[in-house]
Amino acid sequence: MRAVITVVGKDTVGILSGVSEVCAHNGINIIEVSQSILQELFCMIMLVDMEGATVTFSDFSDELKAMGREKNLQIHAMHEDVFNTMHHV
């Protein structure tokens, strides 16, 4: 399965590397990254492939959420299908 990770919060050093590191040590491949900064608010969207993941999706999602709390960021990981279903006819 593929998942979409969104990160929203105040721009600080090391957000991208932090999230990438969580993906890497769980064997999750990053396919695409887009990021923008809107009025100091950092917003990053990542598409990842869970094929080779060494953890379950829910553990991965919990780990990202925990990191988000630590760095004061809102991080969500959701199944790609949620967005495809909701926004594509």
């Binding site: 695409e32 917003c43 959701m78 790609e80 949620v82 909701m86 926004h87």
Partner: peptide, 12 residues
């Protein structure tokens, strides 16, 4: 990739 605005709308 899915439109950024759509993704943020769903999360919101």
């Amino acid at each position: 990739m899915i439109n950024t605005r759509d993704i943020l709308e769903t999360i919101q």
